[in-house]
């Protein structure tokens, strides 16, 4: 499974961050959210950044304690709180910034897809976040490109 993010639909409301921190940490705190919205307001750019559940995850490979493992049911990479000692190697190596850190607990935190029913998707009002099977990703992206291209062609024709 995979969290597909559509930047065009994101309005920067941050509901995903609130849903995430409340679900996982029982507190409304964007600083503790696994998903993080980057905002460049006047440019109209809003990018929810999240773990991509990589095929060859450097976090898993780098962790000296074997605390990062893939959940076979959901495909999500999960941090084992009991094993993690907070060395932050995974934060350093993740190229996407998909790994977070809970200062109070002293452990790395990341998106676990909420066991397959992500709370961020429930609260996202615009459909910018979607949970999909991996093989759907490319098809959805292609459909979006098709839509853009046909719009461009139509405007050229005018």
């Amino acid at each position: 499974m995979y969290l597909l993010i559509d930047y065009d639909k994101c309005t920067g409301c941050g509901l995903c961050e609130l849903a995430c921190s409340f679900h996982h940490e029982n507190i409304f705190a964007p600083s503790l959210s696994r998903i993080v919205v980057l905002r460049r307001y006047m440019q109209g750019i809003f990018i929810p950044l999240n773990c991509a559940q990589c095929e060859e995850p450097v976090c898993e490979q780098t962790c000296p304690l074997g605390a990062v493992n893939r959940n076979p049911d959901t495909g999500a990479l999960e941090v084992d709180d009991d094993k993690c000692q907070g060395c932050k190697m995974c934060l350093l190596v993740c190229p996407l910034g998909g790994m977070g850190f809970n200062k109070a607990k002293g452990t790395a935190v990341k998106c676990d897809l909420c066991g397959g029913e992500p709370e961020c998707v429930n609260f996202c009002p615009t459909g910018a976040l979607e949970i999909i099977e991996d093989e759907q990703t490319i098809r959805i992206k292609k459909q979006k490109s098709l839509k853009r291209m046909s719009e461009a062609l139509a405007s050229l024709a005018e």
Partner: peptide, 17 residues
């Protein structure tokens, strides 16, 4: 019109750039 934008925790996004 350029983009819909929201206030905090708003499902409506009545603000626009």
């Amino acid at each position: 019109f350029i983009k819909d934008t929201s206030c905090f925790a708003c499902p409506i996004a009545c603000d626009k750039i």
